[in-house]
């Protein structure tokens, strides 16, 4: 009986959190866009996007390199090392680019967003905005949401591009795969709509979900040190799970049933 009540309560809590999250999202998205907010959004794009560039580039490079190394050792047994190019490009564009970027983004920028908004709440900055008749959803949350949604797809594209170059470095320059076949087979195999665009759509969805989770967790955090630390952890855990789960769903829709 006790367990049942507990289950019921936690389910109710989850649903009410979902409701609050929707309110935060609607409040941020629906708030009337103001000219004054554009510089704020640009500043946030710099913070969450540009400052994430180094981790994205380094990770993309290494993932491309590892993939070329692993792919080569397998493909060479079948004399199919010429297919290294499309293998690297397709895995990056369809899966690894959007997914790994989203996971890194959650760890690097999502956690920072949660902590920042949580601390603003703890230090009464959000309350004082409200008392100054400034809506914190419009002033604080909306620019961060848009910055995340704009930055992450671009980061994913950069990730994939750098990964393909990393694959080239290992596959072509070090292991001796023919440069012509690396590029030309890649060009003939990779479809614009099927692969590039679908990967881009994935990363837009991930961007939206990860940033939403991050800002909501910050906004809804308990304003104490434990509360903010828990909220930051939850941001990373929930967004990682959401990204991996959604990736399966999106992949099934995009590439699954022909």
């Amino acid at each position: 009986m006790e367990a049942l009540a507990k289950l019921g309560r936690s389910t109710l809590d989850k649903f009410s959190a979902l409701g609050r999250a929707t309110f935060v999202l609607l409040g941020a998205v629906m708030s009337v866009p103001q000219l004054k907010n554009i510089p704020l959004t640009i500043k946030q794009i710099y913070v969450v996007g540009v400052q994430s560039l180094s981790i994205i580039i380094v990770s993309g490079l290494f993932i491309g390199m590892v993939m070329a190394l692993q792919g080569y050792t397998i493909l060479v047994d079948y004399g199919a090392e010429g297919s290294l190019g499309p293998m690297v490009a397709l895995s990056l564009l369809r899966e690894l680019g959007p997914v790994v970027t989203a996971l890194l983004f959650a760890g690097r920028a999502g956690s920072a967003l949660t902590a920042e908004i949580g601390l603003m709440k703890a230090t009464e900055q959000l309350s004082s905005l409200e008392m100054m008749a400034v809506d914190p959803l419009r002033r604080i949350v909306a620019p961060r949401l848009w910055a995340g949604v704009i930055s992450m797809p671009m980061l994913a594209i950069i990730f994939s591009a750098v990964g393909i170059l990393g694959g080239h470095l290992v596959g072509v320059d070090w292991l001796g795969v023919d440069a012509g076949s690396y590029w030309s087979i890649m060009q003939s195999t990779v479809e614009w709509n099927e692969d590039v665009l679908n990967g881009f759509i994935k990363s837009i969805v991930f961007a939206f979900v990860v940033t939403w989770i991050a800002i909501f967790k910050g906004y809804d955090s308990i304003p104490t040190s434990e509360g903010i630390s828990a909220a930051t952890t939850q941001t990373v855990v929930y967004s990682s799970l959401a990204v991996l789960g959604l990736d399966f769903v999106l992949t099934a829709i995009m590439f699954g049933i022909e």
Binding site: T123, E124, Q125, S127, S128, E130, M131, M132, A133
Partner: peptide, 12 residues
């Protein structure tokens, strides 16, 4: 609220 104002304990 534009006619009221609040000084928070932390300053905020």
């Amino acid at each position: 609220r534009r006619q009221m104002s609040m000084l928070f304990q932390s300053g905020a």
